[in-house]
């Protein structure tokens, strides 16, 4: 073939060249990975480990089952390749180069949650999924589950996500009690594993209107920053937000290619309207949540 003419597209030559080479992960590497698992501690989810660990394991199994199904359907038919030895690198985090996050578009549309008693601004054209609510008591809320409202970047660029849900709180429930079940994914931010992130001002305030005829107020939110550019599933920081107003506990998550300024701008568009939330489930009593 050398020196001959060809009539193919150069991209097809490139693709054919890339297809050359090994495609099977050597068994020695598989064994090295599996051998290291028992001595590789998994991430903890914050200050309420006993309660959270149950959900963590269920979640991990759920992820595994789902991925098994997805991969089984879509796996490539790869040809067998050669074997080789492998080193044993330490499982240290791999900081990625911080991506130059595109600016958050104007939050010129408004989403009024039919299930959770709040409204929030979002960029026109983004994909909105209304949460079906109510939030089952005693269960964790995840941004992707059907309970939560979700607003994500339009198809073709899944890079930012807002999600929110709320639940009626029993009298006497504190913010710590609410966070114990509402924010199982919150955990102390580990700056060593991540690129720098701008600090949040304290306090972060959220608009709140008790009733349509009442004057607007503001309530303080607890905001934690989790995840980082290298490890978070959307490749950006994760802002977990909890706030209590009008007898309801709200939890919001903003994640993806967001700067701290973006997150604050988005939070500034939230208006809590607990009176508009339909009657539904309520959180477990403080004693039950411990």
């Amino acid at each position: 073939m050398t020196g001959t003419n060809a009539t193919r597209d150069p991209d097809s030559v490139l693709a054919a060249w890339l297809d050359e080479g090994p495609t099977d992960l050597p068994d020695v590497t598989r064994r090295a990975i599996l051998t290291a698992l028992p001595t590789t501690s998994q991430a903890r989810r914050g200050l309420f480990a006993p309660w959270r660990s149950t959900h963590m394991n269920m979640f991990a199994r759920g992820a595994a089952v789902l991925v098994v199904a997805v991969v089984a359907i879509g796996a490539l038919a790869l040809v067998a390749g050669p074997r080789g030895d492998v080193g044993a690198p330490s499982p240290s985090p791999v900081p990625s180069t911080p991506a130059s996050a595109p600016p958050l578009p104007a939050l010129d549309a408004t989403f009024v949650s039919p299930s959770h008693g709040y409204q929030v601004g979002y960029p026109t054209g983004w994909t909105v999924t209304k949460g079906i609510g109510p939030w089952p008591p005693g269960t964790a809320r995840y941004p992707a589950n059907s309970v939560s409202d979700a607003i994500v970047t339009p198809s073709g660029a899944y890079r930012m996500r807002f999600s929110g849900a709320s639940i009626a709180l029993p009298r006497g429930m504190t913010m710590d009690g609410f966070r114990a079940f509402a924010s199982p994914l919150s955990s102390p931010f580990n700056p060593d594993a991540c690129a720098p992130v701008a600090p949040l001002p304290v306090p972060v305030m959220i608009d709140y209107q008790a009733n349509p005829g009442k004057s607007p107020q503001q309530v303080e939110a607890v905001v934690s920053i989790n995840g980082c550019l290298a490890l978070a599933e959307l490749g950006g920081y994760i802002y977990d937000v909890e706030v209590i107003a009008g007898g309801r506990g709200y939890t919001f998550t903003l994640d993806g290619q967001l700067t701290t300024a973006d997150a604050l701008a988005w939070l500034a568009t939230i208006k809590l309207e607990p009176a508009s939330a339909p009657a539904g489930s309520s959180a477990p009593s403080p004693s039950a949540s411990k």
């Binding site: 590789t40 998994q42 991430a43 903890r44 789902l66 997805v70 499982p91 994640d255």
Partner: peptide
């Protein structure tokens, strides 16, 4: 090994791959 360590923090199983 990073995936194993950070899997508990994955919030959307559909995003695993």
């Amino acid at each position: 090994l990073l995936a194993w360590r950070e899997l508990p923090r994955l919030r959307d199983p559909e995003r695993f791959e």
